[in-house]
Computed example of a mutant assay.
Amino acid sequence: MCTTDRRTLIVDAAIDQIARQGLRALTHRALDTALELPAGSASYYFRTKRALIEAIVDRITTRSRDDFTAAQLAPTGPIDPDATAAGIAVWLDHLVAERRNQLIARHTLILDLLSDPELHTRLARSLFSAERARELFHAMGIPDPATAAAAADFIALLEGAVFDRLAGNRAELTPGTPESVRQFATLLTIYLRGVIA
């Protein structure tokens, strides 16, 4: 196994460890045990816990950017709020279904990293892009500087909707179902229609 593959394997195991057992359970030794690696393997690739957490932040950020690109959600041409909400709803549903452990680890780390402004900021911006949100509202005809405020509010809405699905009132709603997509779409449609009203 090459170094890059082993590093990725360790980072993914760390994400799963945080999601299943919490941040306190994340140790180099626990990762070695979980992956059946020789003792000291995780600490060889990530000398400190902070280095491991930095790699987790990078992994979540890269995956988020790749997913967004694959979903082809960047605005092109006139924006229909209902169609835009439906497209983003499908993407959010996929996010919650396919990346549950990453999302749980991210929320856990965001709170833990409040005292580390550099890593906290990187992680807070890892899932949704303020720049892409501003592009959306600009394409919807929202004038500057109102686009920045609309984008920030929209990201707050997305963050809340995702958290609600992980640990809130709608945690029981099964992702990957029409009901799940519909709930996201309804919420987003209300916001997007309100912005252009």
Rank of each mutant, 00 (worst) to 15 (best):
F68D: 08
L92H: 11
R63I: 06
T48W: 13
S41C: 07
T33V: 15
F46M: 11
L119W: 03
L23M: 05
S129N: 01
K49M: 11
K49L: 10
R20H: 15
I104D: 05
L23P: 01
E172D: 14
G176C: 11
I56A: 06
L111W: 06
T189F: 11
G22H: 12
E179V: 12
N101M: 05
A151Q: 02
L52I: 10
I155S: 00
A105Y: 05
R182L: 10
L52T: 04
K49W: 08
D144V: 03
S41D: 04
N101L: 05
A156I: 00
S180M: 07
D112C: 01
A89S: 14
G77P: 06
E159V: 00
G160E: 08
R170N: 13
L173D: 03
F128E: 03
A86Q: 15
Q183A: 14
E98K: 08
T48N: 12
A89V: 12
E118I: 12
I18K: 04
L31V: 10
K49S: 07
A152I: 03
L26S: 09
A70K: 13
V162T: 12
Y191G: 04
L26H: 12
D116L: 11
I60L: 10
P175A: 08
A185L: 10
G160D: 04
R100I: 08
P78H: 11
L23G: 03
G22S: 09
D32P: 04
V96Q: 15
V162F: 03
D32Y: 08
E179S: 15
A14L: 11
A171D: 09
S64R: 05
T61Q: 07
R122M: 02
A86N: 13
L192G: 06
E98S: 15
L23W: 06
I10E: 02
G194M: 04
E54K: 07
L188P: 05
P143L: 05
A55V: 08
H94T: 13
R134M: 08
E159S: 00
L35P: 01
L35R: 09
A149F: 01
A148R: 00
T76K: 05
G160T: 04
F137D: 01
G87R: 15
A70C: 03
F154I: 00
A97D: 14
G168R: 06
R29W: 03
W91N: 12
A86L: 14
A71L: 10
R20K: 12
I104N: 07
A86K: 14
A130N: 00
L103K: 12
D67E: 15
R7L: 03
E172L: 10
I15K: 02
D153Y: 00
D112S: 14
V90K: 12
Y44T: 09
E131R: 13
T121Q: 09
L119H: 06
V195D: 04
H107P: 01
L52E: 05
L127G: 01
L95E: 10
T4C: 00
